[in-house]
């Protein structure tokens, strides 16, 4: 039972779920200030390429390269953030969409990124943890599990820990002064400004945090899939990340995570229907806006279930 549960196929899907959940957090953070940034795939690609190149060309260890990739995204976010965030909603959405396209075209043309051929042979997290585990004397597997399964589990655990840390950080942020400023800006930017909140500062902060997390997620995914190319980070990828938040809900951080979980698992259950995936995504976006603009999970849902469950337990 355990052996078949730990089938590498399921473990791999688990990894993609966790990466997408991390991306969900990144889009949640910018949305927390009421800003819609469609540049997440762009930041993801900056993180992925930086981390891949740092490990391949400079031999930097993976655990250093991935956060460095995140920092590279932050740097770019800082440069475009200041002018971009003077713009309001719609303009920002389109400008960041444009930013993603420009980044993609640049990666297509740089020599170091190998253009459309992409970068292959990226050191894989699975193999690396496998090596560490063999060094620890687990080379022949353990308890009936193969080395591949154990190292996959280890990677899954690492990703899970990263997700939990990010979640913890986001939740703490939400209850802090910063989080309250985010909420105030989201509710009414002019009013927030009138109350003495430095709206530009907080908007940029949210933008940068989102970019960092997207960059880290990009780095992680590069080291899980051996290969990256500019095609992996196009407009459709942006929409895919964005739909996690729209579907799950963007008022609470659990929303995008639930969205990522459901929308990554669903296609695997419906592999036969993969032809219709984009059609279903489109319909979801329209239906959510019409019927549940706040997404599956919002404060109200949480309150509703809490009182309902509370009542039942008191009986």
């Amino acid at each position: 039972m355990l052996n078949s549960l730990l089938n590498p196929y399921y473990l791999q899907i688990g990894m993609f779920v966790l990466i997408n959940a991390i991306l969900g957090i990144s889009i949640y953070l910018t949305l927390a200030t009421g800003q819609l940034s469609l540049g997440n795939a762009g930041f993801m690609s900056i993180g992925a390429y930086s981390s891949a190149l740092l490990t391949i060309k400079l031999g930097l260890p993976v655990y250093l390269a991935i956060p460095t990739g995140g920092m590279a995204s932050v740097l770019i976010a800082l440069i475009i953030g200041f002018p971009a965030l003077r713009l309001n909603g719609l303009y920002l959405a389109i400008a960041t969409l444009g930013f993603g396209e420009v980044v993609r075209v640049i990666f297509l043309n740089l020599k170091i990124t190998n253009g459309a051929l992409g970068i292959s042979g990226i050191p894989s997290l699975n193999v690396l943890t496998g090596n560490v585990l063999s060094a620890l004397g687990l080379g022949d597997g353990f308890g009936g599990l193969s080395l591949q399964q154990i190292s996959n589990c280890a990677v899954l655990l690492i990703l899970f820990v990263i997700l939990v840390l990010l979640l913890f950080f986001t939740r703490r942020l939400g209850f802090s002064r910063v989080g309250r400023a985010f909420a105030a800006i989201k509710a009414d930017e002019t009013a927030a400004q009138a109350m003495g909140i430095n709206t530009t500062y907080f908007k940029i902060l949210a933008f940068i945090l989102g970019a960092f997390i997207a960059g880290v997620a990009g780095g992680l995914s590069a080291h899980l899939t051996f290969y990256i190319g500019p095609k992996d980070f196009d407009y459709h990828r942006t929409v895919e990340i964005f739909i996690f938040a729209v579907f799950g809900g963007s008022n609470l951080v659990w929303g995008p995570i639930l969205g990522a979980l459901l929308l990554t698992l669903l296609p695997e259950f419906l592999r036969a229907a993969s032809d219709y995936r984009m059609m279903i995504y489109g319909a979801i976006l329209v239906a959510m806006m019409a019927f549940r603009p706040l997404g599956l999970i919002s404060e109200e849902t949480v309150r509703f279930w809490r009182t309902k469950l509370g009542r039942r337990s008191s009986k």
Binding site: N7, P8, Y9, Q12, F16, T225, Y227, D232, E268, S274
Partner: peptide
């Protein structure tokens, strides 16, 4: 179906090999 996407191709390969 890989849909021409690398993550779908990876999932497909893992499914074929392991499941």
């Amino acid at each position: 179906d890989s849909r021409g996407e690398k993550t779908d191709a990876i999932n497909a390969a893992n499914k074929l090999v392991n499941k």
